[in-house]
Amino acid sequence: MAPKALVNKINNVTIFTSPKCSCRSVSDFAWEVAKLSEIRNREKVNIIVFRNPFNRLISGFLNKYVEHTKYVDDAKRKNPRVDLHSFENFLGELSSNGLKLIDKLHFTSQISAYKRRTFDLVFNSEDLEPLQNYINSMFLTSVEMPFRVNKYGAKNLGESPSAAAADSLPCDPWKLDAGRLLELIKSKQTPAYSDFYNPSLKAIAKAFYHDDFSFLTACLDRGLIDSGFHERLTTI
């Protein structure tokens, strides 16, 4: 069962989200629409807000294991020898032991809680304007989707930095320790998410989130998403 905060209902429209997939923004938005709208939708519609698994994984690592310490502390209480100081080591732990020491809430696959659900629409959590427009059009509202970021602000996603900026960044960011990464985050110099993956790390992420990638392929086959949408959510 997914936590109730991740499932938002507006009459017969249900929006399903996952941690690290703009769940709070979507929840706040849905609550405002439900509060303002007087329209009753007669047909049931199931919507899932999905995030590129590669982006979600590095975003979760930077937020929960670099910007915070409680998750590292939790892991060390279970195994004092665990080493999660770099993204490379973090993925090594996932590959070897799964979620035994890693926070389950933020790193479990997005589809795991919803395997018995069927969906009518899929939206990209990294581009919520289409969802905003769809819901506002349905309920004749004009609510703006809130954009939530952590205290250090938004990070880079798929775009690499300019050539000048790239020259000042360290090579192989997947090897950087948490302290150095935090310095980069605070100074707004976080490498692009795509730069954190070499081929072997990409293979680990793809294997770990096999169910999510399979779900997206099934959505493509069913015609719920087009090839461009599928590519945005499955490549980095």
Score class of each variant (00 low, 15 high):
97 N>P: 01
86 S>G: 02
110 Q>F: 10
22 S>G: 14
199 P>L: 06
180 R>T: 09
16 F>Y: 15
85 H>F: 10
67 E>A: 10
57 L>R: 02
12 N>V: 05
72 V>G: 09
120 D>M: 12
36 L>M: 11
98 G>R: 02
67 E>Q: 14
82 V>D: 01
71 Y>D: 13
29 F>G: 10
76 K>R: 06
196 F>H: 02
88 E>H: 13
83 D>F: 00
39 I>D: 12
174 W>G: 09
228 G>R: 14
25 S>H: 08
231 E>H: 11
192 A>K: 00
194 S>M: 15
209 Y>L: 02
116 R>F: 08
168 S>Y: 14
12 N>F: 03
142 S>N: 09
86 S>Q: 01
232 R>N: 04
77 R>L: 03
113 A>D: 15
98 G>T: 02
62 L>Y: 14
36 L>N: 10
15 I>F: 06
64 K>C: 06
58 I>M: 01
59 S>V: 07
55 N>D: 13
130 P>E: 11
207 A>V: 10
165 A>G: 12
229 F>P: 01
162 S>M: 05
227 S>E: 07
202 K>P: 00
81 R>S: 11
216 L>T: 03
112 S>M: 09
198 N>M: 00
86 S>Y: 01
14 T>P: 03
42 R>H: 01
54 F>G: 05
54 F>V: 03
6 L>N: 07
209 Y>V: 01
144 E>A: 07
18 S>K: 11
234 T>S: 12
8 N>W: 11
